[in-house]
Simulated scan of single mutants.
Amino acid sequence: MNSIVPASAIERRWPEGAVDEIVRLVDVHRRFGETPALDGISLTARRGEILGIIGRSGAGKSTLIRCLNGLERCDSGEILIEGRKISGLSERELQPLRRRIGMIFQHFNLLSAKTVEENVALPLKIAGVARTERLDRAGELLDLVGLADKAMAYPSSLSGGQKQRIGIARALAAGPALLLSDEATSALDPETTRSILALLKDINRKLGLTILLITHEMEVVRGIADRVAVIDAGRIVEEGPVWSVFAEPQSAVTTSLLSGIRPQLPDHMARRLSQTGGTEAIFSVDLAGPAAQGSLLSDLSAALPHSFRLVHGGIDHIQNQPVARFFIAVPTRDAELPARVQQFLTARSARVEGFGYDTDHA
C-alpha cells in the first residue's frame, strides 16, 4: 500500500536524503521524422518551486510535458525525476514514478459517470489503496480545494472552475512531488483563472509542491511563477526569475509574448514616427528594482534642463519587485541632446531603446 501525505499537512516534511532537484533535464532531444520537437533542452526545477514554461503553439511545450511524465521517450539526453533517470525504464518501472507526478489538464478530463468523490479517488483505486483510505483522502482534498460539499455531485453539474478544482484534487491524490499543469487555465474566464492560480499558489505554499506550468499566457506566469523558461523551436531561449525576465526580456520571442501585458507605445503615436528626423526623439525606458521607484526623471531634468515629456507607461510589481516601463519624448532642437539623455539613463541602470522621431508634435 502506498504511503500518502495528508492533504491537511502544511509543514514541508521530506524523507531523509530527499533530493532538492525534483526535475532535471540535460540536453534532451526528441524528433518526429525530420522535425526537432525538443532540440537540446536543459532545465531544472527545485523542490517547492513554481516554474513557468511558456512558448507559442508548436514551440515544443506538449512534447516536453509528455517526456516528463514518460508518455514520450526522448531520443537522447537525460530526464531525472527526484534524482532518478527515467530514460530506459520499462512501462512497469515507470508506474511508481508516475504516481509521483500529478497532471492537470486544459479540459479537466473528468469521468462523467463517476461522482466528484469517485473522480478524485480514482488514482488511488488504480494504485490499490483500500476504499476507506482513498475516500478519506478524497474528502481531505475536496476540502483543500474548497468543494467538500460537491462530493456526491457529478461533473455535468459543475462550472468550469469547479471542474478544474476537482482536476487539481485528483492530481494530488497520490501525494505527488511534482504537479504538471498543461494549459490548465486556457479554457477559463479571467476571474476563474485568477482563482485557480491563487489555489495553486496556496497548494504550493502549504504542501511545498513543485509545479511546472506549461502555458502560452504570460499573465499566468506573472500570476504565480517563481521562474520562467521561454521555449521556441524546441530550445530554451531565455530563463530566469519572472520579475527579471519581464523587466528585461533578452529574446525577440519573449518580447513578443510580453507585448500584450507590458506598456507599448500607443498606436496613434507609433504610426507617425519617422526614422530620419522630427521634433522629438522617442525612447522607451525599462527599469527594475529600487531604480524603478527612484527619482530618475527628476534627476534627468535637473542634469539636462529641457522640456522632456512622459508620453506613456507605468510601474508594475512582480514577485514584490517594482518593474517600470515608460516612454519619453526628448526635444531635438539640440541635436546632441537625445544621445546625452540616453547616456544619462543607461548610466543609471536603465535599459533604453530609441523608437524614432515624432514628426507631428509641435
Rank of each mutant, 00 (worst) to 15 (best):
E191M: 06
F105W: 04
G277V: 04
I101F: 06
L257R: 09
A324P: 05
V253Q: 11
A281Y: 03
I166K: 06
V28A: 02
I4L: 14
R325Y: 04
A7Q: 05
T276E: 15
S8G: 12
E239Q: 13
Q95P: 03
A113R: 11
E133T: 13
T215I: 09
R222L: 09
G294D: 08
L287N: 04
S159L: 14
R66N: 09
V220F: 06
K61Y: 08
M269L: 15
D299C: 02
V5Y: 09
R47I: 06
R165I: 07
L297Y: 13
P155R: 05
R170L: 13
M218R: 06
A281Q: 13
E133V: 12
C67P: 05
T276L: 08
I65L: 12
K163S: 08
Q319R: 09
A59Q: 03
A302G: 13
S307G: 06
E21M: 05
Q293K: 11
P266L: 07
S159Q: 07
I203D: 12
R100F: 01
D226V: 09
L111S: 10
P190R: 05
S349D: 08
L199K: 04
L38D: 05
D360G: 12
G160F: 12
A187Y: 07
M1N: 11
F355C: 02
S301A: 15
I86M: 08
H268E: 15
A324R: 10
R262W: 08
T276G: 09
R351L: 14
I50P: 02
I22E: 02
A229G: 09
G77W: 01
V19S: 12
F108Y: 15
T346W: 05
T279E: 09
A233N: 07
R272H: 13
D39E: 07
G52P: 02
H268P: 01
H216C: 11
G289E: 05
L71H: 00
G83P: 11
A291N: 05
R84T: 14
R227S: 10
L337R: 02
D232W: 03
T193K: 02
V330M: 07
